[in-house]
């Protein structure tokens, strides 16, 4: 897949890496400055908080080396803030690579962190969180404090995950950031592809293209299949409102709209992360930074 991309010199799967600093906030030495570093299989995210308020974050691709990715993401979140590693009072690592975050004081699973982060982003009414990451999907139930009450996770398989979407973006030569919009541009929703396995779905998609389907239609059929799979996971954990989606796929409007249709429920709207809103992809890192603050305070009391 990457061979094709290199040949044509366009990497359709490549999504935007960026960082943000809320420059209206200023930090002082006496503040409790904490960080959360979420090393996922596809993306690494770091968030920095001042006294439990989000100050900055960075989002980038995970490289082959988890500790390195963790460091880069955290450095990026600190860029332009004047902060140095020493200024961070407590750091929590999370995500698939959480045990390989060298600067972290503690590791907490991304399941707990996403619930906590969603509670911060959308408020205490959130009860169900769907986190669609690069390698797995998790349906999480939580209480009004963002504490996990139950959860389900897909098995070891890339189906219905961000990685699967990247594969399709590349196959269909559609930039990943447009993939949601394009999937919704079909006049009539085609039946979902029958196989959600990424490897087989790719074969099936090639077959459909050969049959004369437009790439929009193929994409719609694949996105539909993914949305069905995610909706099933949510139904199994039990859907209670309010419902939100976090992780990279929260930005895929094709997925979000279809899940809403299948489940018959609206998600709380995604903040406008391109401007001044919080990014649901960073929810895990935000949750980790919140845990970091709580753990720091607990440590100080002892």
């Amino acid at each position: 897949m990457s061979d094709v991309a290199q040949k044509e010199d366009v990497e359709y799967w490549r999504w935007q890496e960026y960082h943000r600093v809320f420059s209206n906030k200023k930090w002082k030495n006496k503040d409790i400055i904490t960080a959360g570093v979420d090393v996922g299989s596809v993306g690494s995210k770091a968030a920095i908080m001042i006294d439990g308020e989000v100050y900055s974050w960075g989002v980038m691709r995970t490289g082959s080396n988890s500790p390195e990715s963790a460091k880069k993401a955290l450095d990026w979140a600190m860029e332009g803030t004047g902060l140095r590693l020493n200024d961070l009072k407590y750091i929590v690592g999370t995500g698939y690579g959480r045990v390989n975050v060298p600067m972290a004081n503690k590791a907490i699973t991304e399941i707990a962190c996403h619930a906590k982060g969603a509670n911060y982003i959308w408020g205490p009414s959130v009860r169900t969180v769907l986190d669609v990451g690069g390698q797995d999907i998790k349906a999480i139930r939580c209480d009004e404090t963002g504490r996990v009450t139950s959860f389900l996770m897909n098995d070891k398989c890339a189906a219905g995950t961000g990685r699967g979407m990247e594969v399709f973006a590349d196959l269909l030569k559609i930039p990943i950031e447009d993939i949601g919009k394009v999937s919704l541009s079909v006049e009539e929703e085609p039946p979902p592809v029958s196989c959600t396995c990424v490897a087989f779905a790719k074969t099936e998609a090639v077959g459909l293209l050969r049959k004369g389907w437009s790439k929009e239609k193929v994409l719609a059929a694949y996105t539909r299949a993914m949305a069905v799979r995610m909706s099933n996971l949510i139904s199994r954990v039990g859907l209670e409102r309010e419902f939100v989606i976090t992780g990279g796929q929260s930005k895929n409007i094709g997925i979000v709209t279809r899940i809403e249709t299948i489940l018959g429920v609206k998600c709380l709207p995604t903040p406008n992360w391109r401007e001044n809103g919080l990014d649901p992809m960073v929810a895990g890192a935000i949750g980790a930074a919140l845990f970091a603050k709580a753990l720091y305070e607990k440590e100080q009391k002892q």
């Binding site: 699973t109 707990a112 996990v148 009450t149 959860f151």
Partner: peptide, 8 residues
């Protein structure tokens, strides 16, 4: 999975 359950 196991650690998230234990955390819970």
């Amino acid at each position: 999975r196991v650690e998230a359950f234990l955390e819970m």
